[in-house]
Amino acid sequence: MLDDASITALLLTLKLALLSTSILLVLGTPFAWWLTRTQWRGKSVLEALVALPIVLPPTVLGFYLLVAFGPDGPVGILLSTFGMKTLNFTFTGLVIGSVIYSLPFVVQPLQHAFSQTDNRQLDAAATLGASPWDRFFTIVIPQAKVGYLTACVLGFAHTLGEFGVVLMIGGNIPNETRVVSIAIYDHVESMEYSQAHTLAATLLCVSFVMLLITYVSKQYWGRK
């Protein structure tokens, strides 16, 4: 049913989504915690910046990334001083783009979950001998499990559906930057509707099943 090119595109998309989500969880956890706890006045500016990808057309984000990664852009210049090539039209570039593009979908649920942390339970844990790290890993993170589930699914699903950013900085290189959304677009362009259908339906099912699992688990955990 799926031809080799479609499978390659699907696997590449999964790889991109998994990698981006993992990076987002690792970076997003301390960042969201800091945002929850800080009294810093400039916090709102950062929060607005993080939320930008929600409202911005992805092509705008993609355009600026293209410029930044380009030979005259800040990232491009920085990389060339280390003797590295441009990130445009590479998988690495796509990962970086996805991380920025999906940032709010991971940071916001985590921030919300962390803001529910009961300080008294943290105080109790401290008097029971738990260090700050220990408290974070044994109280804060386990109690934010619904937030983590939401962050994982939204981050993952949002990256799956990425199109505008890829269009700008990724191009259409098989097994490097040709993700499912681009492949579907390609198929439609060349009037290959049945291939487009297959890929689109696959993406639709995967996204729906993931969201369904999330909402069912939320309801279950919420009741417990």
Partner: peptide, 30 residues
Amino acid sequence: VPTHQRGVGYVFQRSHLFTHLSVKNNLLYG
């Protein structure tokens, strides 16, 4: 000395049990 190294037991007005742990794991935490 930070709280977790003082060896101080604190019983709060409300129990502040860890809501994500069982009674047994609450008891074992300290």
